[in-house]
Simulated assay, not measured.
Amino acid sequence: MKKIEIYEPSMCCPTGLCGVSVDPELLRISTVVDKLIKGNISAVRYNLSSAPMEFINNLDVNKKMGEHGVNILPITVVDDEIVLTGRYPSNDELIEFLDLSPEFFMD
């Protein structure tokens, strides 16, 4: 089974979906991760402010951040390999990264 991890910048809460103005991209990625988990795919989001040790323990993520700072976030890791930096993956990219059927996100 494929595993995806998303390393995100510091946010006010683990999902970033609080406050009066919700970023539509955070809402989309939160929904997508929930769908992946319900589809028995290992998917996790790490927020820099609530899970800093995850950023330290992943040597590749730690190195990227050391070279580029927090502006490199979010970082998407699939099966322990960095596949995308600086933005969240699109649904089409997730289909490709995780070998999903094109219909996975349709409903």
Rank of each mutant, 00 (worst) to 15 (best):
97 F>R: 04
76 T>C: 08
51 A>D: 14
8 E>L: 10
11 M>R: 13
48 L>S: 06
22 V>F: 09
23 D>R: 07
5 E>A: 06
107 D>W: 04
45 R>I: 08
78 V>K: 01
27 L>E: 14
34 D>P: 03
86 G>N: 07
41 I>D: 00
45 R>E: 06
21 S>H: 14
42 S>R: 10
40 N>H: 15
104 F>Q: 02
97 F>E: 01
22 V>D: 04
105 F>H: 04
15 T>V: 12
35 K>Q: 14
59 L>M: 13
40 N>K: 15
100 L>M: 02
38 K>F: 06
73 L>D: 01
103 E>Y: 09
83 V>N: 05
85 T>S: 12
30 S>R: 06
73 L>M: 07
6 I>L: 12
44 V>Q: 12
3 K>L: 05
35 K>I: 12
11 M>V: 01
65 M>Q: 08
106 M>Q: 10
48 L>C: 08
51 A>N: 15
32 V>P: 00
39 G>T: 08
77 V>S: 02
36 L>M: 06
107 D>I: 07
70 V>G: 11
68 H>V: 09
72 I>C: 08
89 P>W: 05
8 E>Q: 15
65 M>P: 01
16 G>D: 03
24 P>M: 09
64 K>Y: 11
10 S>Y: 08
94 L>V: 03
39 G>F: 05
81 E>D: 13
47 N>A: 10
9 P>S: 07
102 P>C: 06
80 D>W: 09
34 D>V: 10
42 S>C: 04
59 L>N: 13
100 L>H: 02
75 I>L: 07
69 G>N: 03
27 L>R: 14
78 V>C: 04
26 L>G: 02
34 D>S: 15
81 E>P: 00
55 F>D: 10
84 L>R: 05
45 R>Y: 09
27 L>Y: 12
92 D>Y: 11
64 K>E: 12
13 C>P: 02
78 V>N: 01
76 T>A: 09
102 P>G: 04
60 D>N: 14
106 M>H: 11
20 V>D: 13
61 V>K: 04
78 V>D: 01
2 K>Y: 09
4 I>P: 00
39 G>W: 07
16 G>C: 07
15 T>K: 09
100 L>C: 02
87 R>Q: 11
97 F>P: 00
5 E>C: 02
102 P>V: 06
4 I>K: 00
44 V>Y: 07
14 P>L: 11
63 K>A: 06
82 I>G: 02
27 L>I: 03
14 P>D: 05
80 D>V: 11
59 L>R: 15
44 V>S: 06
65 M>L: 15
71 N>L: 09
87 R>S: 10
88 Y>M: 09
41 I>G: 01
84 L>H: 04
86 G>C: 08
107 D>P: 04
28 R>S: 07
87 R>H: 04
68 H>R: 13
49 S>I: 00
70 V>Y: 14
13 C>E: 05
64 K>L: 15
49 S>L: 14
87 R>C: 02
19 G>H: 06
40 N>I: 04
19 G>F: 10
94 L>I: 04
19 G>V: 08
6 I>P: 01
44 V>A: 11
